[in-house]
Design a protein around this nucleic acid. Structure first.
Lengths: 192, 192
DNA sequence: GAAATAAATTGATCTACATCAAGCGGAAAA
DNA sequence: TTTTCCGCTTGATGTAGATCAATTTATTTC
């Protein structure tokens, strides 16, 4: 279960065996069944979570009870509510498993300890955050400037490797459109 | 001109006089007239920019020539294209001055040097990036889940301190709606 | 492998927002 | 002062996407 994470690390940075062991020693392995929550609205998020297997989503539920997905994560991606973690405030978000999943968790304290003891690790983390920032900025641009069809085409191109693992209704939610609309867009595309 | 930045630093972190001097010694002061570019599409962004006076915007221009504003910055905010900076690729974005502005620039090299020589500064930068990440994530949620009117009300509440300095058409662009629509929303609100 | 449940499609209609176009008021230029 | 421009408003109409509702097609579950 830890293998995927170790391989991920090996691809990103060079570590001594002691460093590897340090990281491993504070890791927490967790399995999640499909539909199981990793984080539930109202709870305070305390971790840094690496997905070693499966597919997850992070979403908010509005006053009308509608779900709005703001993030998907699969193998080798990180997931979590950084806002709740940073401010130690109850999360307004939910994270749950779209498929049976395995995750590697680090408490924030341990994670910070690793970052400071192993600079390469800290740098890797900063790089990931920077990249995520850019991804979000591009998504904002897309959301204010593109049509539903363009957003969908961008999505399946950008996330080609896992897009087919995600139910259409969830993709629609992520794009901010209705499932019916996405269905029509798809049938429109295949006709072309 | 440098005062605003120095005061900003003093509010955020404690520095020795030597450290202050180090930072100051590599700072670049720049004045911008209204409408002047700080970054133009196609150029590679090389800096970290702090706005000490005025109001700026960052935006993309689409194939139809329409501008889409993805960010506003005022006094005490940072601005820049982190994607272009990180990858050293030509920027797809423009940054220009909405009012006459003053900015404090640091080349990326000097900025990294400061971050590593003055850990408190580096930590401050990481905190800013984390916060920006959260801001962007909230904006994504808003954009996929709220009506035009809700987005506008959120905007003027969140950015009450400078919202009135920004032309309505630009606010509309930022929200991903048309100026006519925003005008109608506003007249609808005041009637209530 | 049938029954039950959930996901996706399809049609009819509705609405929020866009588009096109004209006009107004206020600031800047001449 | 007049002229020009620009930001904003207002009206008439168009349209992308939403809503409501009925089926069909997959997936679970027993």
């Amino acid at each position: 279960m830890y293998d995927t994470f170790q391989q991920y690390l090996d691809r990103k940075i060079e570590l001594t065996n002691e460093e590897k062991e340090l990281i491993r020693s504070v890791s927490i392995l967790k399995k999640l069944r499909k539909k199981q929550y990793l984080l539930q609205e109202g709870d305070v998020w305390k971790y840094h979570a690496f997905i070693s297997k499966g597919c997850m989503r992070m979403y908010a539920v509005d006053d009308k009870g509608l779900e709005h997905i703001i993030y998907f994560g699969v193998e080798n991606w990180w997931i979590g509510d950084r806002e709740s973690l940073l401010n130690q405030t109850p999360s307004r978000l939910n994270i749950d498993a779209i498929e049976d999943c395995e995750v590697v968790l680090f408490t924030d304290t341990n994670f910070e300890m690793i970052c400071s003891k192993i600079p390469a690790f800290g740098n890797m983390v900063n790089a990931i955050i920077s990249k995520s920032f850019n991804v979000n900025q591009n998504r904002i641009l897309s959301s204010i400037s593109k049509s539903a069809e363009e957003k969908y085409l961008d999505f399946i191109q950008k996330y080609a490797d896992f897009a087919m693992r995600i139910p259409q209704a969830m993709i629609a939610s992520y794009l901010g459109i209705k499932p019916e609309t996405l269905s029509r867009i798809r049938s429109g595309i295949t006709k072309k």
